[in-house]
């Protein structure tokens, strides 16, 4: 059955690699064989790659709020973050913009956060020369942690705010990155915990109720935060609060968020003067979620 805690996930990973524990559990859960599971996950990986390849810098969303930003980032001549991080940021933007423009993406865990996983994995694969197999393993690691988050808390912005969408994606990505770099299961849990800590309380306040502003840019936040958290964990920095307790705290914070800050388009940036103006212009009347 699905992992109900990171603790259980780590115990299962005592006898085999963590990604394989997740794979085995999936086979038991769905009554599928390993080949079927692997093929499904590989198809998701390839769809992720395609979502980056299919990016069209000339495409604009119906509202006009999204499109062309990834191309600007990729073409920036001088950046504070350096070349590699520029690629990560541009990849995050490109998938998130694809999503806003009704392009094809992989929800990971949601469509609104679909840029995070490809942003951390694709540039890394290119730089380190990692195999496709390893990338698929990374997705299993991410899915394993994501499953715990979805079970104990939520991956829905309407339920628990942006911390549950971009936050969850970031935590999942951080754990996956630790695997990619050869870290231990304990470091994966620490990386996930730190990534979630860093965005705890992040509200879901989409302007005009659309998955565009600030959602597209928050995919960059999710990716960068995942990399920093993975680096901390790989350097031996631990989370003082165990990952399960961080996830439970995130759920408690999510429940405490008022409805205005849970994807209703009524609070935060959506409620600003400019946000309301944009809502009027796009013809959206966000209310009741």
């Amino acid at each position: 059955m699905a992992f109900g805690s990171v603790g259980a996930l780590l115990r299962a990973a005592e006898d085999m690699p963590l990604w394989e524990a997740v794979l085995d559990d999936d086979c038991r859960d769905r009554g599928a064989d390993r080949k079927d599971s692997m093929e499904r996950m590989t198809a998701l990986w390839r769809a992720m790659v395609r979502s980056v390849d299919e990016y069209d810098p000339d495409k604009r969303s119906a509202s006009g709020l999204s499109g062309g930003q990834a191309a600007k980032m990729a073409g920036a001549e001088k950046t504070l973050c350096g070349d590699y991080m520029r690629r990560v940021m541009a990849t995050a933007l490109s998938v998130a913009e694809q999503n806003a423009c009704m392009g094809r993406i992989v929800a990971a865990p949601t469509a609104g956060a679909s840029g995070v996983m490809p942003a951390v994995l694709l540039p890394l694969r290119a730089r380190e020369g990692l195999s496709e197999e390893r990338m698929v393993q990374c997705l299993y690691v991410a899915a394993g942690f994501g499953q715990v988050i979805a079970t104990r808390a939520s991956v829905s912005g309407a339920e628990h705010g942006c911390q549950a969408e971009i936050g969850s994606a970031s935590g999942m990505a951080a754990a996956a990155l630790v695997h990619a770099m050869g870290g231990t299961p304990g470091q994966m849990a620490d990386a996930c915990a730190m990534a979630l800590q860093n965005v705890m309380g992040l509200v879901c306040d989409p302007v005009a109720g659309l998955v565009e502003e600030p959602c597209v840019k928050r995919n960059v936040l999710g990716a960068v935060n995942a990399m920093a958290s993975a680096d901390m964990a790989l350097a031996g920095i631990a989370s003082a609060i165990p990952c399960d307790e961080v996830i439970d705290a995130m759920a408690a914070v999510g429940r405490a968020l008022p409805a205005a800050l849970r994807e209703t388009g009524e609070g935060g940036l959506a409620a600003t003067r400019t946000g309301r103006k944009i809502a009027q212009r796009t013809g959206s009347k966000p209310e009741n979620g």
């Binding site: 699905a2 559990d25 999936d26 859960d29 999503n99 009704m102 094809r104 992989v106 929800a107 994501g146």
Partner: peptide, 21 residues
């Protein structure tokens, strides 16, 4: 909830509820 509820689906955006659903 299976891992493929967390990872995936492949879908046309922008919203799993407002578009894919």
């Amino acid at each position: 909830m299976t891992i493929f509820d967390v990872m995936g689906p492949v879908m046309v955006g922008p919203s799993s509820s407002h578009t894919a659903g």
